[in-house]
Simulated scan of single mutants.
Amino acid sequence: MIEFRTLSDSHPDLAHSPMLRAALLTLQYAQEHGAIGLTKTKAFKRVFVHWAVEHFDWPDSSAEEMFRYNKVINEYEFPPLEVLHYVLITLRLGRHFKGAFKLTKRGADLAQAPGKLFAELIPFFVLKLDHASYARFEERPFGKWDVWMNVINVEANLGTTERELFAAFYGQEHDWDNAGWREMAAFSSCVLHPLEWAGLLVQTREERNGKHVHHVFKTPLWRSALKLDTDEMLQPMKVQ
């Protein structure tokens, strides 16, 4: 079972969530400006996309890096914003009206309530969204969130690697340099990346023996926001 705990609006661990931060910024921008302009295809106009790239502080997508290769960026070229736009509309925190994105009353209320917005946004984003729909690969990993998150809760408690985590579910024979790379890519795109975007996991990268190794750690937000069946199996973290 997966249970998200209720966090206060001032809880410091909420700062670990890129998706929550992006949602708050988007809702507050729409509130301050009255609306966000839409293109004919109902995507956010470039003026807001550029603002989002500069202000979201998205992991591995710095404004400097993105504008280095593209002076003009559309919504679909910044996947976190495209996904967030869909989620906000689906949750009815905003709506399209006369060529603009406008907040609903509920969206306006949650724009100033990070804890309540997290409770609305993150469980839906992680557990309900089809993450393969915006990933580079259409493949979906075999499994379900209840199993994935309870196993990750134990395996990543003191840190692990992406490959070791994948092996805990699907066996040791898969790796990025053999035929199993597609399964690993699907797992990374549909499980690890959403949890990282939600702020529940964080990944660090290093080069070891000519290979890039991804380390996976639970964030403080994971520990404060989640209640899982495997919590009783965890060993306490050592304080140095």
Rank of each mutant, 00 (worst) to 15 (best):
A15S: 12
I73K: 06
Y69I: 14
A186E: 04
H33T: 06
H16A: 13
G115P: 01
M19Y: 04
D13V: 08
M233S: 15
M66P: 01
S61R: 15
F56G: 02
W145D: 09
E65V: 13
A111S: 15
K98P: 02
A119G: 07
A168M: 14
S224I: 07
F137K: 13
S62R: 05
S224H: 12
H16Y: 12
L88E: 02
A179V: 09
G143H: 05
E77W: 03
V87M: 04
L165I: 14
V239D: 10
L195H: 03
Q203N: 12
P59V: 07
S224W: 09
E75K: 02
M19P: 00
P220L: 11
T160E: 04
Y29P: 03
R68L: 14
I152P: 01
E82Q: 11
E138W: 10
K238R: 12
L27D: 01
E232M: 14
V213L: 09
Q112V: 10
V47H: 08
M66D: 02
T160Q: 05
W51P: 00
V202F: 07
W176A: 05
D146Q: 14
L20I: 12
L195A: 02
R208K: 14
P114W: 02
A22V: 01
R106F: 05
E54H: 09
T219L: 07
G180M: 10
I89W: 00
G99A: 11
V49A: 04
F78R: 02
T41D: 10
F101V: 09
K227I: 09
K102P: 00
H85A: 04
W222Y: 10
G143N: 12
E206H: 11
E120F: 08
G210D: 06
A23C: 11
R136E: 11
A119R: 10
H50V: 03
L127C: 10
N153M: 03
F78G: 02
E32W: 00
G107H: 01
A43Y: 04
N153V: 03
D109C: 03
V239R: 13
M184G: 00
W197T: 08
R21A: 13
E207F: 10
N70M: 14
A23R: 00
L234V: 15
H214S: 08
K45H: 12
A22N: 00
R163P: 03
I73Q: 05
R5F: 06
F124G: 06
L38I: 03
F142V: 15
P220F: 11
V49P: 00
G210W: 08
M237T: 15
A111T: 05
Q31R: 01
V47R: 05
E32F: 03
E139Q: 13
S61T: 09
K98Y: 06
F67M: 06
N74R: 07
M66F: 07
W58K: 01
K102M: 11
Q28N: 12
Q203C: 13
Q240H: 11
H174E: 13
F166C: 06
Y134I: 08
G171Q: 14
P236D: 15
R92F: 05
